[in-house]
Design a protein around this nucleic acid. Structure first.
Length: 685
RNA sequence: UGCGGGGUAGAGCAACCCGGUAGCUCGUCAGGCUCAUAACCUGGAAGUUGGAUGUUCAAAUCAUCCCCCCGCAACCA
């Protein structure tokens, strides 16, 4: 068989944040697969890059008072640092803000235009005069036209779920500067006519993705015109590539991001005397994208149809994986489970995470859970206690008493080693199919057999009576260990390298399994893996918790400072009412028993209130942005509307009233509280 | 609300497509060993496979309904 030629990619991390353990689920599994393919002798080019364009980058750079190029350069450095610490083996790590990427974008754009795949339409969009820019939906906030929830994003309401366009929002304002003087302006947009490729996608999907992904995406092929044209242009100011012949128009970041795979590959080719067309243009070569299920539609709808329309080869397969949960829940900053690569590295060995992820990751789109207790246990028992300890026992005994020379095997030992080697094809198949979680299972099975064998022959006894008779036993255990270390090499490259050194070898390939080590003298034993101290895990979690004081205090200060400048944004006084209308509102004081974040919601907190004689009440309030850690309100007294009709909050429960707050959510908001404690249930007026 | 995925011993998973005594790892309990990173070996306890109907000689496995969990739902990277 001819040597396989494989291009592999991981999704491009956005240059707006550091790498965290959630990202690593993807990068590490790609690395496992890539390293496996290299060991099998395939010619692999594993490319990735920073995703550098778009509005969030532009705005952040502006806020930090520097050029976006400076921001993305710094982020790239940080990403590269984190990746190399986790032993990622990219062949090329590039950037989307490069000449190669611009050239590919322009080429594809021209070919799409030629193919009649593009439409030019006028689109009405909100414009912020203060920022002098068009506002993407997520950069507009306002009151939901359906349910009246305040501070909703411009695309849909998180409280009632209604979707709408930003122009439908009441009280629409710019999420960046708070300006309410938004205008609607018409502007030309360029759209990719996705519906034209409906038939192509329909047959493409089942062959190139997992079945559950294909099923999910079939939703988009319903009768109700779901394949709307995809808007690929953005107006200036925008950080990205200007569209040729369209001054002031830029390629949308999601257009140029996947093109970045091609750019990175091209860059690698030019540095290594390779030809791009022999990798991406060759139908015999293979191309695989590893992605998370959040970006499926970009990689399985837009990307393949775009490549097809432009006459490029498409990916061979898109491998979709699930998300990471920690201790069964979404990663959370306040719980300390939003762990950055840097924080992890401060406390723990990257190999431990590589091993544990391997134990969990398979080829489905299910989420995987990093259970921190299980993590420490698993690494300590399996990797250290069961597997590594074999080398430690065997190598030290052989080194101390038998000159470290590996000898011939006895019959039972030969059977043990043969059984270990016989799993080679099965384990290779597991890697190939990305069923990584089964690899440690297989290896542990071998380790169990080796431990039993070791125990049965009690070499620690025979070494005292008949050392030479012990040699075959230790040799068999070490040979079995060597096979295990080779099997684990794609997952634990640093470990495998040290283990290979023990046997006087350098880099192992899959073919190394067939080589005999009889007659070799092993090197000095050094620790291959450290046990995880549960205290280190705890310290890492503590270290990940936010340390700054509750932002509510900050935002109050900011609000005060911003007040004069924002005077125009202050809402007008409502029409006058008579006293009875005011008196109809029954305001009471309550003591907060507990205030907690509502898990399913980004905005809601749940107040458990002690209302004195009025009893206990539960009230939901959309103030999470001002109180990311709502527990700071525990024990405080608050004022609430006691006679507001209870309201069913979708999916979270019934809210029995409304807690009063003051301030503008955009600039700072605080819960109202009596200046001195009063009795819960007392009226306020 | 729609769609996709899932619910199997204390924890994490396998078996489900192609029905046939429910399996693995960790933990737990009892015993052993002492070479090794307090590790390893032997044995035990623990599951009416989310619930209910149905098909069948036989259902974790097939069908229907219900409950619960997670995710996605289009210009937000």
């Amino acid at each position: 068989m001819e040597q396989r030629k494989i291009v592999v990619t991981s999704a491009l991390p956005y240059a707006n944040g550091d790498i965290h353990i959630g990202h690593l689920v993807e990068y590490l599994q790609t690395d496992f697969w890539v390293r496996f393919q290299r060991m099998r002798g395939a010619k692999v080019c594993y490319v990735c890059a920073d995703d550098t364009h778009g509005t969030p980058i532009m705005i952040r750079a502006r806020k930090e008072g520097r050029a976006p190029e400076a921001l993305i350069a710094e982020m790239r450095e940080r990403h590269v640092r984190d990746f190399s610490a986790f032993q990622m083996s990219f062949d090329n790590y590039y950037s989307t803000n490069t000449p190669e990427n611009r050239a590919f974008c322009e080429d594809i754009y021209a070919k799409l235009e030629n193919a009649g795949a593009l439409r030019h339409e006028n689109v009405a969009q909100l414009w912020c005069p203060d920022c002098a820019m068009f506002l993407p939906d997520r950069f507009v906030k306002g009151t939901c036209p359906n349910c009246g929830a305040a501070e909703q994003y411009g695309d849909n309401c998180e409280r009632c779920g209604t979707t709408y366009s930003p122009a439908d929002l009441k009280d629409a304002h710019c999420a960046t500067c708070g300006s309410r003087a938004l205008e609607t302006r018409e502007t030309e947009h360029i759209l990719f006519d996705l519906a034209k490729y409906r038939d192509y996608l329909k047959q493409w999907l089942p062959v190139h993705t997992q079945t559950d992904v294909a099923n999910k995406l079939c939703e988009w092929f319903g009768e109700d015109q779901k394949l709307l044209p995809w808007d690929i242009s953005r107006d200036a100011p925008y950080f990205g590539f200007e569209i040729p012949g369209k001054p002031g128009k830029y390629f949308y970041v999601w257009l140029d991001a996947p093109v970045g795979y091609l750019a990175s590959l091209e860059n690698w080719c030019s540095k290594h005397g390779e030809k791009f067309d022999e990798w991406w243009g060759d139908p015999e070569a293979e191309r695989y994208h590893f992605i998370g299920k959040d970006i499926v539609r970009f990689h399985c709808l837009f990307w393949p149809s775009m490549l097809h329309a432009a006459g490029y080869e498409g990916p061979t397969r898109v491998f979709v994986h699930g998300f990471l949960t920690v201790n069964g829940e979404k990663m959370s900053k306040s719980r300390g489970t939003f762990i950055s690569a840097q924080t992890y590295l401060k406390h723990l060995d990257p190999a431990a995470l590589r091993y544990y992820y391997a134990c969990k990751i398979n080829n489905t789109t299910d989420d995987i859970d990093l259970n921190l207790d299980d993590f420490a246990q698993r690494v300590n028992s399996d990797l250290v206690g069961k597997i590594t300890n074999l080398a430690s026992r065997g190598a030290q005994m052989l080194g101390k008493r038998l000159d470290g020379r590996i000898g011939d095997l006895d019959e039972e030992g030969a059977a043990l080693v043969k059984a270990a080697l016989s799993r080679s094809d099965a384990i290779a198949a597991l890697y190939e199919e990305r069923k990584f979680s089964q690899v440690p299972v297989e290896v542990c099975r071998i380790a169990n057999a080796a431990n039993e064998y070791f125990d049965r022959h009690a070499p620690w006894k025979t070494i005292k009576t008949d050392p030479e008779a012990t040699r075959p036993v230790l040799s068999a255990v070490l040979a079995a260990f060597r096979a295990m270390a080779i099997y684990l090499a794609p997952i634990l490259p640093a470990y495998a390298e040290k283990a290979a050194k023990l046997f006087g070898e350098s880099a192992w390939t899959w073919g190394s399994l067939g080589e005999s080590v009889a007659g070799r003298t092993i090197g000095a034993y050094e620790y291959l893996a450290e046990r995880i101290d549960p205290a280190a895990v705890e310290a890492m979690v503590e270290d990940s918790k936010p340390t700054e004081p509750p932002p509510s205090a900050d935002s109050q200060k900011n609000a005060a400072a911003a007040a004069p400048a924002n005077a125009a944004a202050c809402p007008a006084v409502k029409p006058a009412i008579a006293f009875p209308a005011f008196d109809a509102v029954d305001l009471r004081v309550a003591k907060v028993e507990r205030c907690t974040a509502v898990e399913k919601s980004k905005k809601l907190v749940r107040f458990e209130l002690d209302c004195g004689p009025l009893g206990h009440r539960t009230i939901f309030s959309g103030i999470r942005s001002a109180y990311p850690d709502p527990s700071v309100l525990d024990g405080r007294q608050v004022v609430f509307v006691a006679n507001l009709s209870p309201r069913e909050m979708k999916g979270v429960g019934v809210s029995e009233g409304m807690v009063l707050t003051a301030g503008d959510p955009a600039t700072g908001l605080a819960v109202l509280s009596p200046i001195a404690p009063v009795r819960p249930g007392d009226p306020a007026c």
